[in-house]
Nucleic acid binder design. Structure first.
Length: 484
RNA sequence: GGCGAAGUGGCCGAGUGGUUAGGCAGAGGUCUGCAAAACCUUGUACAGCGGUUCGAAUCCGCUCUUCGCCUCCA
């Protein structure tokens, strides 16, 4: 079975064939580090995390690059705006380097909690100024860029394919809708900045052949992608809102410089909305991950994200998170049962489930269907375990292995094999284990004496502090509820 | 205005020219001292109007609505 990926450039699902057999180069647009990560970041990076995990599962050697943007993105127009990081530095009364370092660490903290695997290379834009300057020089030399008064612009007219990703190919027609003609020395209004001369008081600036200044918005991704992955890469991922202008500009400057295709498969993930409206930092409706994690297990967020397709919008609400919490808990319970089940006699055939799971993932990373397979399997396994004959030890081990592979290794929504589910945060606390044993013992005595008032009191009081007791055929078990 | 995506049962959310998506919530039941969990049963959806077809929610057209991009944004 082959992997098919929806290519935003061709707008069709295409069979995935990397440039070099067995190797995959992938570049994903990283965050601009001037604020804490929000749910939108979670959707994006969880989605691409699963992409990378699946590619590795399929035994590709994956080289994954995800940049950190710590300079260059302006708050407003190319000619008028302020660097967002510099602005945040001003607000926080510190300098830009501290801002980018602080929020970079914050970003990784959140991603680690989401179990998003780190990229192989995480290059910072400010650490690759020479590479960006070299790219600009190349574009000037080939006639695709021009310098005016210390600023360098890419000439859109020199690259006829400009706008092919977003479908904005007729530059002149596009100008009709422009509200205000900007004061600018650009030759064509659609030309975009490759290098900007620093104004008075600008903190982040570097020497260049043209001026003391800073690189343009789109340059870093091209420069760093080519440096670490080569002139043609297999997959470039990012948010849909970046198709234009960011990715179209990347294509233009990269392909103009090398004469080669820049990206073989463009992947764009969709937005997170809140009450149907896009979540965005500038819209001030963004849901901060650090706040979310105070009340919600990060794995629930992963599960929530993966329950919809990466190309679909995902609407955030309290009730949706609650539904996800309950749904994920069901899978965890099944995993627990599998791990703790006593061997029976009936064989259980796992193959159809594995096939369905594989087909779903191979079909443009269809995680909602993959999860549905896990739920179907969960139901079948539970039903089998409910029957007196149970399942054989071999079947049990196969099921455990599949839950481990699919749920933990690939989707990252279930705890590690061997780790006691639901208790992972308290497992190391041996005193708590001891206390729980005492309480469960006392409760068992109460129940034997038919003192249900006491036994229920123990159960209810424990539940009120977030520990749930369940009486099952296999005996009593307890778990720390996620999020409590 | 231009470019693009989408409208699915109470909610979330996949998919498909004719066969149960899945989850959550609800109802009934089994089990349990009671709960919880699990399992069984139950809902029979696809914006509207035309068209193509033996057959469309799935293809085509039109209408309505929503969302994203066209300023930085995952």
């Amino acid at each position: 079975m082959s992997l098919f990926i929806y290519n935003s450039l061709s707008r069709t699902k295409e069979k995935f064939e990397p440039l070099h057999p067995g190797m995959v180069s992938i570049y994903v647009c990283g965050p601009t580090v001037y604020g804490h990560a929000h749910l939108g970041h979670a959707k994006s990076y969880v989605s691409f995390d699963v992409v990378v995990r699946w590619l590795r599962y399929k035994e590709y050697h994956v080289k994954y690059v995800q940049n950190i943007t710590d300079v260059g993105h302006l708050t407003d127009d190319a000619d008028e705006g302020e660097d967002k990081i510099a602005k945040q530095a001003r607000i926080e009364k510190t300098d830009p380097m501290e801002i980018s370092q602080f929020y970079t660490r914050s970003f990784y903290e959140d991603m680690d909690r989401l179990d998003v695997l780190r990229a192989n290379i995480a290059p910072a834009a400010t650490a690759h100024i020479p590479e960006q300057i070299a790219l600009v020089e190349k574009l000037i030399a080939t006639g695709h860029a021009y310098e005016i008064q210390g600023n360098v612009y890419f000439s859109v007219e020199s690259f006829p394919d400009y706008g092919k990703l977003s479908g904005r190919t007729d530059q002149d027609a596009l100008q009709s809708g422009v509200r205000i003609e900007m004061r600018s020395d650009k030759r064509h209004p659609s030309d975009f900045a490759l290098w900007k001369k620093a104004e008075e008081g600008h903190l982040m600036k570097w020497n260049s052949p043209w001026s003391v200044g800073y690189p343009g918005w789109h340059l870093e991704c091209s420069a760093m992608s080519m440096k670490y992955l080569g002139e043609t890469i297999d997959i470039h991922g990012g948010g849909m809102e970046n198709k234009f202008p960011h990715h179209d500009c990347e294509i233009a400057q990269s392909e103009a410089a090398t004469g080669k295709p820049y990206v073989r498969y463009w992947m764009h993930n969709n937005m997170v909305t809140v009450n149907g409206v896009k979540m965005g930092k500038s819209l001030k409706n963004s849901v901060n991950l650090k706040d979310v994690f105070k009340e919600t297990d990060p794995r629930v967020i992963r599960f929530f994200v993966l329950q919809s397709h990466y190309r679909s919008q995902l609407d955030y609400s309290e009730s949706a998170i609650k539904a996800s919490t309950t749904g994920l808990e069901k899978l965890r319970e099944t995993q627990r049962r599998i791990l703790e089940a006593k061997p029976g006699s009936a064989a259980f055939n796992l193959e159809p489930f594995i096939d369905r799971f594989t087909n779903a993932m191979d079909d443009d990373f269809n995680t909602p269907v993959a999860l549905a397979v896990l739920f179907d399997l969960s139901k079948s396994i539970n039903a089998a375990l409910d029957r007196n004959e149970g399942i054989t030890e071999e079947s049990r081990q196969q099921a455990a292995a599949f839950f481990q592979t699919a749920g933990t290794d690939l989707l990252g929504i279930l705890p590690l094999h061997g780790q006691t589910i639901g208790r992972d945060t308290v497992q190391t606390n041996k005193k708590l284990d001891g206390i729980m044993n005492i309480l469960l013992e006392l409760r068992a005595e109460a129940r034997n004496n038919k003192d249900f008032a006491l036994s229920d009191k123990i159960r209810d009081r424990l539940l009120s502090v977030g520990i749930e007791i369940k009486d099952t055929k296999e005996g009593v078990n307890w778990s720390s509820k996620p999020g409590v």
